[in-house]
Design a protein around this nucleic acid. Structure first.
Lengths: 235, 235
DNA sequence: ATCTGTGAATCAATTCACAGCC
DNA sequence: GGCTGTGAATTGATTCACAGAT
């Protein structure tokens, strides 16, 4: 597609999704290394810290450009700079949390958000008994204020931590308020327009996947039943 | 490997990881359909509910065996039975939560765990000021009791919701207590023996990935700098 | 006519292996 | 000698497309 088009210097590389998902992990590791005073490291070292193999690290980093030095390794600070640039972390992305229940509380209080460039600009809830309380130093406002908050605070990401039944509604409200990126913690598949990106994290699903591998390691899979037998049991 | 070995009737199929990760999603959808009284559905319908395409649904389900009916579709209840069997959900897997902070609280209270066959058998913390309090009806016990809890309650999965600095320690304790499956919510890569399975969910990483795609959609990637320039800025 | 189940084809991700630079 | 960067090879996942069952 369009290999005739003249692209500006660092050509519009499209980094594979799998690599994109690993960059934040490398970034985190590199940040702790900086705190420890490490200035250089090899793909081998980063690989073992990240729990992947060295070829993958080199390939992943090569998508950013050629920022290592042959025979030497990578300059930690420079690598951090380049990964941050690629991930768009040179400015902060503000976040609004929808749903001030247990999980919403934990999320708003979660340190990893603000320290990684995602300040919580607001927390909203539909339940007026929760509105007015403070969560992580932020006043809980009514969900009706969502468009105002998003506009005034230039929020770019919405986090859904409502019960499953209200999650689709929350998503609709976020989309209407102009949000284009949603992180969803409710155990539902959200229906959103094409141009909106959604990542869903379902704690139950994570456990079920673990459960599968736990079972595999025990090799005690139960025998199967026929449709008739199952129907009988479910009466 | 060993295709001479006689395997018992439903041959030891090894389901692709990507498919395993989708089965719980299908399961959840099917369960809500049952509640609505739907008895039959086609791969097309399930696909659109799950937000994937129909060929993928059919291939995924075919790993379980041939449990659909050509020209008709799948029997919802039977499919639920088969997916549960494959995932090892015919019995419950007990869970212990390590770290009774904000997130630990939210997790212990999270409904999706117990309703999906993962009862919380215990919550432990290292901080004695938290020990003795109740979380989600469960007494918080000291982390030293971990081996006892795991043994007495036959816990099979450990959930880590400690601060990052204590997560590796928590993992070591879990492994020593005999746990082989860990769900880790701390933003660290855990170092565990080969035979232990770990899934890590890092909320910050999830946001950073979203941030990347948000930036892509805006196409305002900042210009890059040389190593010299970056070094100057970082003084 | 409809919808599953599955080989074959395609597309994506990972790993190998080595040339090129320090 | 050591380590990066990258084509080529491999492995894994997805999609196509159609034979086969109802």
């Amino acid at each position: 597609m369009a290999d005739l088009a003249q692209t500006s210097s660092p050509a519009r590389r499209r980094i594979p999704d799998a690599a994109v998902a690993r960059l934040p992990v490398y970034l985190q590791i590199l940040n702790t290394l900086i705190a420890d005073g490490t200035a250089q490291l090899s793909s081998d070292q980063l690989a073992s810290l990240a729990g992947v193999n060295a070829a993958k690290v080199r390939k992943d980093l090569s998508y950013l450009g050629s920022y290592g030095t042959r025979g030497v390794g990578y300059d930690v600070a420079y690598l951090v700079y380049q990964i941050k640039r690629e991930l768009g972390q040179h400015h902060e992305w503000k976040v609004v949390v929808v749903g001030a229940g247990n999980l919403g509380n934990a999320l708003a209080n979660y340190n990893g958000f603000s320290t990684r460039g995602f300040p919580v600009a607001g927390v909203v809830d539909i339940d007026s008994s929760k509105v007015g309380k403070k969560v992580a130093g932020v006043l809980v406002r009514h969900v009706d204020d969502l468009p105002t908050i998003v506009r005034e605070e230039s929020v770019s990401i919405g986090v859904i931590s409502t019960p499953p039944a209200s999650a689709q509604h929350a998503a609709d409200l976020l989309v209407n308020a102009g949000i284009r990126s949603i992180l969803n913690f409710a155990s539902v598949i959200l229906n959103v327009p094409e141009n909106i990106s959604v990542r869903s994290v379902d704690l139950g699903v994570e456990l079920q996947i673990l459960g599968y591998y736990e079972q595999l390691s025990r090799e005690d899979k139960p025998a199967t039943k026929t449709k008739r037998e199952v129907a009988a049991i479910c009466q």
